[in-house]
């Protein structure tokens, strides 16, 4: 019979007789997986790529990082050269972002400030991460009494008003880059410690379950497939979100006069120095640092949101 497969016979009687023979089964057919199976990370990455807002954030952050590195280099001016003839100039081809009241080039200072602001943010996030992993790891791993007391300490610290403590520390230690980072990390690590502890407890549970079922050989696979996604997701998101909050806190400290001190500059200190002159119309002094703080915040936030969605195992389909 010359009937092709997709031309179905129209009536039951027109079905060829030789179709009524036992089927030759292709064993591998039954097992074939139709859907492409992606690893967790590939899947997460794919979903992140699809998230336009997050990609925008990633793009801006790359741009800001690039400019933080090369901005001061491509600028013909230096950070703290005071050109007293050219004070308070508005943006021009000579001074792209204008100059401040001491005649310093705002463009150069902005990208120089970017270095410091980003450094503060990233350093604080990294230190939070380190302390959090160690503290949370120990609490979760030891369990029992140790865990109990360690969590009590966290509870008390958690009740402390974060920014007040930061202010207090900065007042006492005197403003400096190190002080700021130290002050920011004093209570900043708590969130991370909690996450890590929770995850470690979970790992212990898995190990227990596995051991009791003597599935030993599959431990590696389970850790890779289930545990790392569950653990790394929240940690990455937490880190992404703690960078901007550190940058923000630094700006706040600068406003209180406890931030980065001249001749150094951060976005925060530039913005707060610019506040008194804004009403006289020198908008560029505030605009550039404030704009880039906001852009950084925005980028980290949308990237963090995107990561949260992309890394959430629950949302995986």
């Amino acid at each position: 019979m010359a009937l092709r497969k997709h031309q179905e016979p129209q009536t039951q009687s027109s079905i060829p007789d030789d179709w009524f023979v036992p089927i030759k089964k292709n064993e591998s057919d039954a097992e074939a997986v139709v859907r492409p199976s992606l690893s967790y990370w590939q899947d997460a990455w794919r979903r992140l790529l699809k998230n336009k807002l997050a990609m925008m954030g990633l793009f801006f952050l790359s741009f800001l990082t690039f400019m933080a590195i090369f901005g001061p280099i491509i600028s013909p001016h230096t950070v703290d050269y005071q050109d007293l003839v050219n004070q308070n100039l508005s943006p021009s081809s000579e001074h792209w972002f204008g100059t401040d009241e001491l005649g310093r080039d705002v463009f150069t200072r902005t990208w120089y400030g970017a270095r410091i602001s980003l450094f503060v943010g990233i350093a604080a996030a990294l230190i939070d991460f380190l302390i959090g992993v160690i503290y949370g790891g120990i609490a979760g791993y030891k369990g029992g009494r140790t865990d109990h007391y360690m969590m009590r300490v966290i509870e008390v610290l958690y009740g402390l008003p974060y920014l007040l403590v930061v202010i207090l520390i900065s007042v006492v230690m005197g403003p400096s880059l190190a002080t700021i980072i130290f002050a920011l990390t004093i209570t900043g690590w708590i969130g991370m410690a909690r996450i890590v502890r929770g995850q470690v407890l979970q790992i212990k549970n898995y190990e227990f379950v596995l051991a009791s079922k003597t599935f030993g050989t599959k431990t590696g696979r389970i850790i890779r497939k289930n545990l790392l996604p569950n653990t790394m997701g929240p940690i990455i998101v937490q880190m992404t979100l703690s960078v901007p909050s550190a940058i923000f806190a630094e700006a706040f400290l600068s406003f209180l006069g406890l931030g980065i001190q001249a001749p150094l500059a951060s976005w925060g200190s530039m913005a707060s120095d610019a506040l008194p002159v804004i009403l006289s119309g020198d908008w560029w002094r505030l605009f550039f640092p404030a704009f880039f703080i906001s852009l950084t915040m925005f980028s980290f936030n949308v990237l963090g949101d995107g990561l949260q969605d992309a890394l959430d195992p629950k949302l995986r389909r």
Binding site: P244, A251, L275, A290, S294, V302
Partner: peptide, 11 residues
């Protein structure tokens, strides 16, 4: 909302 979070209150 994200813009609201992104702009420091003194700005």
């Amino acid at each position: 909302a994200v813009l609201g979070i992104s702009v420091p209150n003194f700005v």
